[in-house]
Every structure is written in structure tokens, then in C-alpha cells.
């Protein structure tokens, strides 16, 4: 399935809903969209991965890039993901220790300090 991207606002957070396959071919479009959002002034960004069917290292690299960009701009960045297949990818790469990962959009947008879900 092709990449799909949709943006909405939830509790003063910019939520980017991503769907389909995020790989070496489609990841540049995800990068562009995230850069556009930050350039347009978004500071609290949540990327919802619920609709993602495939995610590779290129996609992970784009997400790390966005997180760094937002940190430099004193913003916050979080991911919403509850799919075990994707969570496993974050664990293998140790990126689960880098990203705040939330089970729901509500949890992500209510975490005002951006430090991630409480264990």
C-alpha cells in the first residue's frame, strides 16, 4: 500500500497520521512533510503509526531526524504505536529508548513534558 499522510490538531498537538509502507522509496515524502510542519511552526508533533504496515531503517531515520529538529526548536516529538510488529523494530534498534512511544493519541497529547509514557 502507498504511503498516506494526514495532519490534524489534537489538544494543541500536531498529529501526523501515517499509513501504508514507509521505506527507502516513500520515506523522503514523510521527511518533506515533517520538515514542512516544523517550518510552518508546529512545535508539539505526534506521529501516529497506527496505519503503518511496513517501516524500515530509512523511515526510522526520518523519525529520528524530526525528533532532533524539534528538540533544537524547543518542541516535543512523540510516536503513537501499539502494533507489536513495529514495537519489535523499535526494541531491536534500541530506538524504544530514544523515542517517547505512546499506545494512544490521547496519551501522547496529554504528556505535556514529552518525556514519554510513565512505566
Amino acid at each position: 500500500m502507498e504511503l498516506s499522510l494526514a495532519t490534524r490538531t489534537v489538544a494543541e498537538h500536531t498529529v501526523l497520521e501515517v499509513g501504508g509502507e514507509v521505506d527507502v522509496y516513500t520515506a523522503p515524502r514523510l521527511r518533506e512533510r515533517l520538515v514542512e510542519l516544523v517550518d510552518a511552526g508546529a512545535r508539539d508533533v505526534v506521529v501516529d503509526l497506527a496505519g503503518v504496515e511496513f517501516l524500515d531503517s530509512t523511515g526510522l531515520g526520518v523519525l529520528v531526524g524530526a525528533m532532533k529538529r524539534l528538540r533544537q526548536a524547543n518542541g516535543s516529538f512523540g510516536l503513537v504505536c501499539s502494533k507489536e510488529a513495529l514495537l519489535k523494530i523499535f526494541r531491536i534498534t534500541a530506538l524504544d529508548q530514544v523515542f517517547p512511544i505512546y499506545p494512544t493519541i490521547e496519551a501522547a497529547t496529554q504528556d505535556s513534558d514529552g518525556r514519554g509514557p510513565t512505566p
Binding site: S57, T58, G61, V64, I92, T93, A94, L95
Partner: peptide, 13 residues
């Protein structure tokens, strides 16, 4: 860099 990160993450996977 993004490239170094992607390479490292790719190999980790």
C-alpha cells in the same frame, strides 16, 4: 548524520 543513522539502524535490524 541521517545516512549514518539509517545505515547503523538497518544493520541492527
Amino acid at each position: 548524520t541521517d545516512e549514518a543513522l539509517t545505515t547503523g539502524v538497518g544493520f541492527a535490524l
